[in-house]
């Protein structure tokens, strides 16, 4: 597999570590979240047949976390974004 890193261009997937569903960005605030909300965040993932937004970490590279939109049916990589930008766009800040 090849991941088109937004900063470094096409890189082989062997340089990356995959974490899984990008919903892990949406961490609830532990001070206000219920146990159920935190439980769902920690344990529940969608498993779509089709486009899937995933977190990949360029461990053997620049250590960027990326959000890779990948088709689980064809392995086609549809979009690659810096996770930091995705997080900010989703309203995460400090």
């Amino acid at each position: 597999m090849i991941i088109d890193h937004p900063l470094l261009g096409p890189r082989d997937a062997a340089e990356f570590v995959v974490l899984g569903d990008a919903s892990l960005i949406d961490r609830p605030d532990g001070m206000t979240a219920t146990v159920e909300e935190m439980h769902d965040y920690a344990y529940l993932r969608d498993n779509p047949a089709g486009d899937h937004r995933e977190l990949w970490y360029h461990e053997q590279g620049d250590r960027s976390w990326l959000v890779v939109t990948r088709s689980t049916l064809t392995h086609e990589v549809i979009k690659v974004e810096l996770a930091r930008n995705v997080a900010r766009a989703q309203g995460r800040s400090r």
Binding site: L24, S64, W65, L82, A83, A87, R92, R94
Partner: peptide, 19 residues
Amino acid sequence: AVLVFRNLEFARQCLWPDL
């Protein structure tokens, strides 16, 4: 050592990107 660093980067970039 590797896993902790990875997780810290995750927290830094994905959870609190403006710290």
